[in-house]
């Protein structure tokens, strides 16, 4: 009898559909439960797909946002360029004005310097010259005059009719005055 080859022995025993698998213990239910747990768990690949989709959506959104921002900034830059041009124009105008002002100031300064250096001219008002002769009075006379003025001021004023010699002259020339002097005479007579 030809001995069996090693390969044949193993192939016969362990090859397709081994008949004695039942002698090998295997907890089929436990493994099945584990498999079910894994199968019912949301697949990682779905998670990856979802994550990638979210990343793509977010990146797309941010890309659009960025484009919008860039567009806005470009608009602002254009506005600023326009403003810069306008400002340059204004600046040139202002500089031109400053030059003019400077010239004016220089002119004024020149005029002022000229005025300062010129001799002062007094305003020519009309002057009326009054020539009065000085009156010299002696000191005793002057003192006496002062005393008299003082005494006069102290004298009480009497409410008496006063008759002046000049009234006679007046009455001679004017009837009113004459009447006045006549009245004075009558009053004097009655008093006497």
């Amino acid at each position: 009898m030809k001995p069996k080859s090693l390969d044949n022995i193993f192939k016969e025993q362990l090859g397709n559909d081994p008949k004695q698998v039942d002698i090998i213990p295997f907890d089929q239910e436990r493994v099945w439960n584990n498999v079910q747990k894994e199968v019912k768990r949301p697949s990682i690949s779905y998670g990856w797909v979802a994550a990638i989709a979210i990343v793509l959506l977010l990146s797309g959104y941010f890309h659009l946002q960025q484009r919008q921002i860039i567009r806005n900034q470009q608009g602002l830059i254009a506005n600023q360029s326009r403003d810069i041009v306008l400002l340059n124009e204004k600046q040139n105008n202002i500089l031109a004005n400053i030059d003019t002002t400077k010239q004016v100031v220089e002119k004024k300064t020149l005029i002022y310097q000229k005025i300062e250096s010129a001799p002062a001219i007094m305003p020519s008002y009309k002057v009326k010259v009054v020539s009065m002769m000085p009156v010299y009075v002696d000191k005793p006379v002057y003192e006496e005059t002062l005393m008299a003025e003082k005494e006069e001021s102290n004298i009480e004023q009497l409410n008496l009719p006063v008759y002046y010699e000049s009234d006679e002259l007046a009455s001679a020339s004017q009837p009113q005055v004459r009447n006045k002097s006549l009245t004075g005479k009558i009053t004097k007579m009655l008093n006497d």
Binding site: M1, K2, P3, K4, S5, L6, D7, I9, F10, Q13, L14, P18, K19, Q20, I23, I24
Partner: peptide, 18 residues
């Protein structure tokens, strides 16, 4: 040598050997 003396190995023995 691929030949063995007259040997009668059981399923379990084969599995264990492998």
């Amino acid at each position: 040598t691929d030949s063995l003396p007259d040997t009668d190995l059981s399923y379990k023995e084969c599995l264990s050997l492998v």
